[in-house]
């Protein structure tokens, strides 16, 4: 309780201001510091308009914003599903190298390679290619539209 009282008193401001007129030997025994104040951070999502480039959302050019919006749209067209063990070939996600577990959210690319949705979406925002066969996803998407 003592700590609670202390941390909410105005006095911790003088502690923060440094010890210039405090003799450290006279200081009371150190108490557990209160956690840093909660600051509602507006965390800007980070985008990768091209490989190797990382920028917060508010620093993107208009062209990059359009490109990202289009990319998000395309990614949302790719089928998703939950891992149920029926696909014997796909056992692990080559991006995180973890084995698929029942119920994992997967995303399927037109080349039929599949990954954890979270893993592949992160990659597709940087490069619109399949990590396994390097096939460009947009070209393959177009052919699936034309044939179906």
């Amino acid at each position: 309780m003592g700590n609670c009282f202390k941390s909410s008193s105005n006095d911790d401001i003088s502690l923060l201001r440094g010890n210039d007129h405090h003799d450290p030997a006279l200081e009371p025994a150190p108490f557990v510091e209160p956690p840093p104040p909660y600051r509602p951070q507006q965390r800007m999502p980070i985008f990768h308009p091209s490989p190797g480039v990382s920028r917060p959302a508010n620093q993107l050019t208009e062209d990059e914003q359009i490109k990202i919006a289009q990319r998000l749209g395309l990614i949302n067209h790719l089928p998703t599903g939950k891992y149920d063990g029926t696909n014997k070939k796909a056992k692990e996600c080559v991006i995180c190298m973890n084995e698929f577990v029942f119920g994992d959210e997967l995303r399927y690319l037109p080349c039929m390679h599949c990954y954890h949705r979270e893993c592949i979406d992160d990659w597709l925002m940087r490069s619109f290619t399949c990590p396994s066969c390097m096939e460009p996803v947009d070209a393959a998407l177009l052919t699936t539209y034309q044939t179906s």
């Binding site: 190797g52 080559v94 991006i95 990659w123 490069s127 990590p131």
Partner: peptide, 8 residues
């Protein structure tokens, strides 16, 4: 190591 890198 650069442009043809893949997470696989």
């Amino acid at each position: 190591l650069t442009e043809d890198w893949s997470p696989a």
